Computed example of a mutant assay.
Amino acid sequence: MLMFIMNLSGKRALVTGGAVRIGKAIVQALQAEGVDVVVHFFGSKQEAEMLSPFTVRADLGNLDEVSGLIEAAGPLDILINNASLFTKDTLAEAQPERALREMNVNLLAPMELTRCFAKQTTRGAVINLLDRRIRANDPAALPYSLSKKGLEELTKLTALELAPGIRVNGVAPGPILPPPGESVEHFADRAGNIPLQLFPTPENIAEAVIFLLKADFCTGQVMFVDGGQHLLGNGVFDQGV
């Protein structure tokens, strides 16, 4: 029987990259459930402080700054690895220094945060934010795709290692918001085919996060919130699909 923890009230969570965009929606959804949320930020200090009295700054591309983040934010019941760095680099464009920073932010920082999280609690939940690209091969975003596919594997491996006390799940969004400076219309033209013909919203992603936090019998799961794009694999940009 699927059991639910219906009340998250009184829990304490850390949301990385929680000041803006999808992270902001997740923070607000958690707060609506009565969770005390620590908002991690890198450059969005004002936005973070407007969301929560609990904030912490760190550059997730610098792993020396990552190690103390859990201690600074804790003690924690929930960890949301939301912060992400996205570059559209092919193999020819993927310079080692930039690719390594992307791997640090998207994969190695979540791994270190999860390790530190598990050292300070025996019961809790981790949610990793993935990408629908984990079900496709996108050579136009090679380091990013590698990092997110690695994060999916990390989700499964840590779900096994940290059970039964800590559950680890993932949420994989599709196209949500245009990058800064890009119009919604241009973004929609480049988003590819979406079977449901609807763009997910940040609030949709936050709803999935809340569901997985409450789903007491789910671990190692990945919930796609992408309008069905992951079903198309590499066919997202094929015409007539």
Rank of each mutant, 00 (worst) to 15 (best):
A109T: 02
E152C: 12
L151G: 00
D138Y: 11
I134Y: 03
R132M: 15
V171R: 00
N169M: 11
P175R: 05
E102I: 09
P195C: 12
S145R: 07
P202W: 06
S145F: 13
A159Q: 04
G174W: 04
G124Y: 05
L142F: 10
L107M: 04
E182V: 12
I176Q: 01
A188R: 07
K148Y: 03
P202E: 05
P143F: 05
G150W: 04
T122Y: 09
E185N: 07
P164K: 12
E102D: 08
G165M: 09
E102A: 11
S145H: 06
T114F: 04
L142W: 12
T122I: 11
A125P: 00
G124L: 13
A163T: 10
A141T: 05
R98T: 15
N193R: 15
S183P: 03
R132K: 14
N169A: 15
P202Y: 11
K148E: 02
P178W: 12
D189E: 15
L154S: 01
N128K: 05
A141S: 09
P143K: 03
A172P: 00
A99D: 03
E152H: 13
R190T: 14
C116M: 11
L177M: 07
L107W: 00
L196I: 08
P173Y: 02
I176R: 01
T155M: 07
G165S: 14
L157F: 13
P175T: 08
F117R: 00
L177G: 01
L154A: 08
I166C: 02
L157Q: 15
Q95C: 09
N106A: 06
G124E: 04
L162S: 02
D131E: 05
G181P: 03
T201E: 07
G192C: 15
P110V: 03
P175F: 06
Y144V: 03
G165K: 06
S183L: 15
R123M: 15
P96V: 12
I176T: 06
L151Y: 02
V171L: 05
K156W: 11
L113K: 02
L162N: 01
L130S: 02
D189N: 11
G181H: 09
S183N: 10
Q95S: 15
I134E: 03
K156Q: 11
L107D: 00
N104V: 14
I176E: 01
K148R: 06
Q120D: 11
A136R: 06
P173D: 01
A140V: 11
G181D: 06
G181N: 07
P143G: 03
E161K: 09
A163E: 06
R190C: 10
F199S: 02
T155S: 04
V168Q: 01
A141W: 06
D138S: 14
I166P: 00
A118H: 03
P173K: 01
V171Y: 01
S145V: 14
K156S: 10
E203M: 08
